[in-house]
């Protein structure tokens, strides 16, 4: 299934770093996203766009993952040539990721 079916997401930026959250709609689904939406998979998913490393932080209390993607915004909001200067649309890409529907 698509990640979109069980999780929502929001993207922010700091300089040339993109920060994407993935949050389970239902806390019971957190284990599923924790298992399948790994830093490695996210790095591979955005391989076209993210040049640097991807670090994942976990917030099990609110059922959330937080991905910090380095060298991800072609120089960052103040100088990039990209149409999406903040990378704000990245969350919509990530929700299109395919994940298994059980642990």
């Amino acid at each position: 299934m698509k990640l979109r079916e069980i999780a929502h997401s929001r993207t922010g930026d700091k300089g040339n770093i993109s920060n994407i959250s993935v949050i389970a709609y239902d806390q019971a689904q957190y284990k599923l996203i924790e298992k399948y939406v790994t830093a490695e998979r996210v790095k591979e998913f955005f391989s076209d766009m993210v040049q640097g490393k991807v670090v994942r932080y976990t917030l099990p209390n609110i059922g959330a993952l937080n991905f910090v993607m380095y060298d991800a915004l072609s120089g960052g909001v103040t100088r990039t040539l990209s149409l999406d200067i903040h990378g704000k649309s990245f969350s919509s890409a990530l929700l299109n990721m395919e994940i298994p529907n059980k642990l």
């Binding site: 922010g12 609110i62 959330a64 937080n66």
Partner: peptide, 11 residues
């Protein structure tokens, strides 16, 4: 929840 995680990097 979305806003809490927004742009915080390491929680």
């Amino acid at each position: 929840q979305e806003q809490m995680v927004y742009e915080i990097h390491d929680p």
